[in-house]
């Protein structure tokens, strides 16, 4: 039995488990070694709790990460996993997903991993629309290297490597993903278990690259970066929970949010709603459109090619002009 029975086109071809799993089944025997209070813990818990919902065979799920605090993630999940090198997880995952249509492939990355050293692989994965779920833990700082500014740090950030304040504007990961024509783009907050689960569910259902930006707190080097979005007094006013079909007022204009719009008009406008001040921060799904996936197309091309048997292979080796020496 394969996953085709599930309401998840993103998981078509991945075998389904015979026995339902629990969050505990997804916990590995490794001691989790993030700093106390790190946002990664709650994200891990949420994902361990969410994965059983997919109903997949555990052995057909693979988590691939790069380098950074977030990239330790695969060690703590009892699935197949690879902790690779800095920035390259999307490229490794592309090779895996392209050759193995029966796997559910997830990438865990951070703001430095995905947007600095690995920027090229990230945009090309999204351009190709490889069936990968990319979870970008954005804490706006380099944590593992002990506190340098990252490509998402706000301008003027004072860090060990920028004592006079960092120079240069930060990336807006959602706008970047939309610019790379990602077919699924969403944002969630580490501590918002319900919101994160909802976005993960939609990402898993989506067939193609899903880029999920997760605002994640680093209690050591950038503590409280997203506090205004978590504090109940503030968050109600600042958080803009995205709903497909709902209307949002941006710069005096009313946008009816249409996640499937080809022009991505509301997606663009919403991606730029937060000017960095976090006055109004959209969370939820910005875009979700269908486009043929890279890996499906490669597999279809191969399936279409008339199968070559040994005789055909020997004839290939012989070429058009062989000769015989008696």
């Amino acid at each position: 039995m394969t996953a085709e029975a599930l309401p998840f086109p993103g998981l078509r071809g991945v075998p389904v488990a015979e026995v339902p799993a629990t969050a505990k089944d997804y916990s590995s025997d490794q001691e989790v070694r993030w700093c106390p209070g790190c946002g990664d813990y709650v994200i891990l818990k949420t994902i361990q709790g969410f994965l059983p919902e997919l109903g997949l065979r555990r052995e057909n799920i693979v988590f691939i990460s790069g380098i950074g605090c977030s990239s330790r993630f695969p060690y703590y999940l009892d699935t197949y996993g690879m902790h690779s090198i800095h920035g390259r997880a999307p490229a490794i995952a592309t090779g895996l997903a392209t050759t193995r249509g029966d796997l559910s492939v997830w990438v865990v990355t951070g703001d430095g991993d995905a947007l600095s050293i690995g920027g090229n692989h990230l945009i090309h994965a999204m351009r190709r629309n490889v069936n990968l779920k990319i979870l970008l833990f954005n804490n706006r700082i380099y944590g593992l290297t002990k506190g340098q500014f990252s490509p998402t740090s706000e301008a003027g950030k004072v860090t060990k490597s920028s004592p006079d304040g960092s120079v240069g504007a930060p990336f807006n990961p959602v706008a970047l993903a939309l610019g790379a024509d990602a077919t699924f783009v969403a944002r969630a907050i580490d501590s918002d278990r319900a919101g994160l689960t909802e976005v993960l569910r939609a990402a898993a259902a989506h067939r193609g690259t899903a880029l999920v930006e997760i605002y994640q707190n680093c209690p050591i080097f950038n503590d409280g970066a997203f506090e205004v979005l978590k504090n109940p007094a503030e968050s109600a006013r600042r958080l803009v929970r995205l709903r497909d079909g709902a209307t949002y007022n941006i710069d005096g204009r009313a946008y009816v949010h249409d996640v499937r719009s080809a022009s991505a008009e509301s997606s663009w406008a919403l991606s730029r709603l937060d000017d960095g001040s976090m006055e109004r921060v959209p969370v939820g799904i910005f875009r979700c459109v269908e486009r043929p996936t890279f890996d499906d197309q490669v597999r279809e091309n191969r399936a279409r090619a008339e199968k070559g048997d040994d005789a055909a292979f020997l004839s290939l080796l012989a070429g058009p002009d062989p000769w015989t020496v008696a």
Binding site: A91, T94, T99
Partner: peptide
Amino acid sequence: TTFQAEDEIAGACAAIGASYGG
């Protein structure tokens, strides 16, 4: 299967991913 990668690094990494998958 041939994969014309976005750069040399991705070419090697995708091959590693493929090998990991068998």
